[in-house]
């Protein structure tokens, strides 16, 4: 009984250490991604206010290509390129002006995020939030996969060990008679 308790404590410790390691890896990944995104970002150039630009050369398709990666800041989760409200029409016009001023798609997106926050893009621009959003699901996936495979391997080793001592008991799979017998005995036990 005492041994079992010790084992359990050891198990919990092991689990706690594992969880801590996963959290550290998680934080590290987010940090690395954050750094790489932060260094890759272009400096923001603020346009000259007040200047009138000729927007006739900017096609609707060019505007929509940028707007498609933005969300309407006031309606809920509607991409800006398809939102029919008056506010969205104005925002698309703003994109058109910025395109006419020669800004790149990324610059316009960054500009929108600065003004309206990270909720106007499908994946946050802020390096920390971007890292958090994108790393977490992959990390969960990786943990599941690694743990699954390691348990398969570990379990297989364990099975080899038992196989040597208790040959025959494992391969009841196709043994219909013994299977049925066990089922019957189970049923009797439950009655």
């Amino acid at each position: 009984m005492k041994m079992a308790t010790n084992q359990r404590i050891a198990g919990i410790r092991w689990g706690a250490r594992l969880c801590a390691r996963i959290v550290i890896v998680w934080a590290f990944c987010i940090w690395v991604v954050q750094l790489s995104i932060a260094s890759a970002q272009e400096p923001i150039t603020t346009p000259e206010p007040g200047a009138v630009v000729d927007t006739s050369a900017v096609s609707d398709d060019a505007v929509n290509a940028v707007a498609a990666s933005l969300y309407c800041p006031v309606c809920e989760n509607i991409p800006l390129d398809v939102c029919p409200t008056e506010a969205c029409i104005q925002w698309r016009e703003e994109i058109r002006i910025q395109l006419a001023e020669g800004q790149s798609e990324q610059q316009i997106i960054t500009n929108f995020v600065d003004r309206y926050g990270d909720r106007v893009v499908g994946v946050p621009e802020d390096p920390l939030l971007r890292g958090l959003s994108l790393i977490t699901p992959w990390l969960i996936g990786a943990v599941v996969l690694v743990a699954g495979v390691s348990i398969l391997i570990r379990w297989r080793r364990g099975q080899r060990g038992t196989l040597a001592t208790t040959t025959g008991t494992v391969s009841t799979l196709d043994d219909e008679a013994s299977y049925r017998a066990r089922l019957e005995s189970d049923l009797i036990k439950r009655r």
């Binding site: 969960i140 743990a147 699954g148 379990w155 099975q159």
Partner: peptide, 17 residues
């Protein structure tokens, strides 16, 4: 939830119900 799948995959020792 995943945690549990993993645990379940481990064989339960028959002598310690």
């Amino acid at each position: 939830m995943t945690e549990n799948l993993l645990n379940e995959l481990e064989p339960t020792p028959t002598d310690a119900p």
